[in-house]
Design a protein around this nucleic acid. Structure first.
Lengths: 109, 109
DNA sequence: CTCTAATATGTAGTTGAACGACATATTGTC
DNA sequence: GACAATATGTCGTTCAACTACATATTAGAG
């Protein structure tokens, strides 16, 4: 039942939402920026992943903050406690893998 | 054409072969040990991954070292230069992700 | 000496996730 | 008026992991 390891896509979506609530398109741009251009999510990947995370209770819709003038359709999402918990677990896993591989990259010259 | 990100399975197989050449079953045991029991590769996963890596030139068969008394069928594999290169790239990617997530785990309390 | 666990390699079918292609509508800029 | 950027979504394909199954040898316990 463990959701780990997260896919890179899921990791970056949670990471971008860990900062503040965002809508889909903003997530794509934020992930591209955070990964220095390496990760560009396809819309098919993003919206499928968001639907899955909603179903699993990792994220939830932010209902109507209507911040500035609407017009353009935008749906905001934020992390749930469960989503934050999973992100922390994944961060811990990543730290362990990075340490493991650092050791062996050294020993392998 | 970039092979990154590696799946967790591929990462651990390369990691275990980065230390020294091994045969399939030994890889399974080594991965289980390195991951402190968290990652236990199913044989279907392992042998499928090995075949793929052979085809892609990440690893190669070690022909006949016949170290100690044969009898049991064992096939040894070692990393190619390409395999080592990919492993180093993945290690670098992992280090970056670990750093990114560490920052945001902190800022999110 | 027989039974069982560990060692060792493999295939087949299912499932889940990413991806590319496509579709649609609005807004800002030249 | 045209085009790029913003914004959300579906559909079909592909690739990898997983479960279950299949087979054979060897070491150790009783």
């Amino acid at each position: 039942m463990s959701p780990l390891p997260l896919t890179e896509t899921s990791f970056f979506i949670l990471l971008s939402l860990a900062v503040e609530p965002r809508h889909g398109y903003a997530i794509i741009k934020e992930v591209e920026s955070m990964s220095r251009g390496r990760v560009v999510l396809a819309t098919g990947t993003l919206y499928t992943a968001l639907r899955r995370m909603l179903e699993d209770g990792w994220i939830e819709r932010v209902e109507e903050d209507a911040s500035d003038g609407d017009g353009r359709e935008r749906k905001f999402y934020r992390l749930t406690e469960e989503g934050r918990r999973i992100f922390r677990l994944e961060a811990e896993r990543l730290k362990n893998l990075a340490q493991l591989s650092a050791l062996h990259v050294l020993s392998a010259g």
